[in-house]
């Protein structure tokens, strides 16, 4: 019952905010627009009106998306009740910033401002940059500090940018699942996410013909499909993966995704289905009136919407045929 009153306000508020997300009709109209400018005009009638007004160049539409992401996180920070919830959902942006700064340090140059998230993550970017300037990482959360130290130790032996990503991704998911330990819904969500990432990673490693040791290194530990499941399958053909996952919730994602890989040699459909799976998982729980479900759902829906807009805008700017764009479009949340 304590949960009820904790979440009641935020959930109700999110219900109103959900109304302002793009609906299927608006997405379809964007898709049917002739050219990028017209697609942007559709956005001008929505929640994005003022941002579209400020946009001077269609090619800079990423600014609009970055601005919206920042705005939503700023707003949500004011009223989301459970700090761990937001910390978990924003953690990926901290990790992203760390990756960029570490790589920039490795290259010995400044990181471009365009590719960092200044105000979205849990740690303000300025603070992170200060840590890098002083090479003092004591103020980082323990899981990140450990990762940075591990990267630093490995770097002197063999500077490999891929390691930065791998170690930080792994630290991220370990941390997410630890954070979500007290929020069962969130834990379930991250477990699904980690499983799907692992399945995709497994397929990619097979396709790229990397060795088994490498696979062991890149698999995340968070999912509930164990690492040995993948390493055992490594020497089998990809079809065996379908059979083995036939009874899991991911059967459809894997079957259809791999069918397209066999046919056209790409994982586009797999990625779309994986994203849709996560979105649908959250969506099916979002009507819960007193719980984190709707709150997680809203943030995921915003991120999904930004992705939708990006896919359409990139497609329109480069004059891709609508089918090609549609193949990649994710579901709509509302």
């Amino acid at each position: 019952m304590a949960n009820d009153s904790k979440y009641a306000y935020a959930v109700a508020r999110v219900r109103v905010l959900e109304n302002r997300l793009l609906d299927k009709g608006q997405v379809d109209r964007m898709l049917e627009a002739q050219g990028a400018r017209e697609a942007l005009q559709v956005l001008a009638e929505t929640n994005y009106a003022s941002a579209v007004g400020e946009l001077k160049d269609v090619h800079r539409f990423e600014d609009l998306l970055a601005g919206e992401l920042e705005r939503v996180y700023r707003e949500v920070r004011r009223f989301y009740p459970e700090p761990r919830l937001l910390e978990a959902l924003a953690a990926k942006y901290d990790v992203h910033n760390l990756k960029v700064l570490l790589k920039a340090q490795g290259l010995g140059r400044e990181a471009g401002g365009d590719i960092l998230y200044p105000n979205v993550g849990n740690i303000p970017l300025a603070k992170l940059e200060a840590m890098f300037a002083q090479e003092d990482f004591r103020d980082l959360p323990p899981h990140l500090r450990q990762a940075v130290e591990e990267i630093g130790a490995g770097w002197s032996q063999r500077p490999d940018p891929q390691w930065i990503d791998i170690i930080l991704d792994r630290a991220l998911y370990d941390h997410l699942l630890a954070l979500a330990d007290t929020i069962p819904f969130l834990k379930e969500f991250f477990t699904h996410q980690a499983n799907l990432v692992n399945i995709k990673t497994f397929i990619r490693v097979k396709i790229l013909r990397q060795d088994e040791d490498f696979l062991k290194k890149v698999l995340l530990r968070g999912g509930d499909i164990h690492q040995s499941f993948f390493t055992d399958l490594y020497h089998e053909p990809l079809e065996v993966l379908c059979d083995r996952l036939a009874l899991s919730p991911y059967a459809q994602v894997v079957n259809e995704g791999l069918a397209e890989w066999q046919e056209k040699g790409r994982l586009t459909r797999f990625e779309k289905l994986a994203d849709d799976f996560l979105l649908n998982f959250v969506r099916s729980h979002r009507h819960h009136p007193f719980g984190p479900q709707a709150l997680v759902g809203y943030l995921l829906a915003v991120e999904n919407e930004l992705k939708l807009i990006r896919i359409i805008m990139v497609g329109k700017l480069n004059k891709l045929p609508p089918e090609e764009i549609r193949e990649r479009l994710r579901d709509v949340y509302v």
Binding site: A8, Y9, A12, R13, F79
Partner: peptide
């Protein structure tokens, strides 16, 4: 609480 959540938006 729910109501003020809605009314705030």
């Amino acid at each position: 609480q729910s109501a003020s959540g809605v009314v705030s938006e």
